[in-house]
Nucleic acid binder design. Structure first.
Ligand SMILES: [Mn+2]
Ligand SMILES: [Mn+2]
Ligand SMILES: [Zn+2]
Ligand SMILES: [Zn+2]
Lengths: 154, 154
DNA sequence: TATTATTTTGTAATGATTATCAATTACAGA
DNA sequence: TCTGTAATTGATAATCATTACAAAATAATA
């Protein structure tokens, strides 16, 4: 945890940004909730618990800054809000997501499954891939079992 | 063109929706601009050229309806607006996109490159895939050539 | 034709995000 | 340490895409 915070601090400094108390509090919230996909408002409320004086605008600005530095990725699951997702330690690309259309659960795939596909894209489309976004929509494990048991097909 | 319109009409009827003049005008705009990725506002302005009496709310409702019917897919490229993208004729899954981070161009890949990946996801994550969203971010062919010629590395 | 359900329109309301600006804080030089 | 300057913050207003609403229009039904 402290290790990752240190790394982010260095990344900020390398672009001559400072790790202010507000920024640190925001990053800590992101680290402590890595499994979730928090909106700016979500982050704001969580940061507020520790640092009640922080303003919503600062949270937005910090998240924007972290996006530029590729510390977080800004994603949109189709509800009206942007969500902010920490990059996995050392990951070159954004991780993948499984979104259940039944229960809304979001699962993560850290493994990069697109290596081969990217080669094809670079070769056949002459497109130099820098990053990707991949989300699967479908039925999660839990909901599949529910369907089998209750016969609910929807 | 007429063929696809007919098909969409039938799809609407099968759910007991009507193809009203406003809906038809909207669908026509989508068909005539299939290469683009129009926002609701974009669609509204284009429809207005032919059917000036249409209201923005109707365009939103129609696009929403077409989304539910899977005639269009609603996507978000990270600018503040939703964009609406016609499904390719007979396509089971949403097509892929290549977004150039230099010039903003959006290219389409109709070929489904995720067959193998989906098998892995179903097998290893026990997730039943219904659809997917895949976007690559990188440098398009045109911008690569510009970079080579001018030495602009950005 | 009378009745009812669907659809549309213009507009108001909502809500997430961004812009603004005065106040605070950090920093570099004297 | 003091001083001027740049960076950052917080409160709040403004923006802007989208949604909600209610009255009018249109279509379907009896
Ligand atoms: Mn994630
Ligand atoms: Mn497309
Ligand atoms: Zn589920
Ligand atoms: Zn380009």
């Amino acid at each position: 945890m402290e290790h990752r915070l240190e790394r982010i601090k260095k990344q900020l400094h390398s672009q001559s940004y400072k790790l202010t108390p507000q920024r640190e509090a925001t990053v800590r919230v992101l680290l402590e909730n890595e499994a979730d996909h928090l909106s700016a408002e979500d982050v704001y409320l969580l940061v507020k618990e520790k640092a009640p004086e922080i303003g919503l605008a600062t949270v937005y600005r910090t998240l924007e800054l972290l996006s530029e530095l590729k510390v977080v990725d800004k994603i949109n699951f189709g509800d009206g809000v942007s969500r902010y997702d920490l990059r996995k330690e050392g990951a070159e690309h954004f991780h993948h997501h499984l979104v259940c259309t039944e229960c809304g659960a979001v699962e993560e795939i850290e493994e990069d499954l697109l290596g081969e596909v990217e080669k094809i894209v670079e070769k056949d489309w002459k497109f130099q891939v820098k990053d990707h976004r991949l989300t699967f929509h479908g039925i999660c494990k839990v909901c599949q079992e529910i369907t089998v048991k209750t016969g609910t097909s929807k």
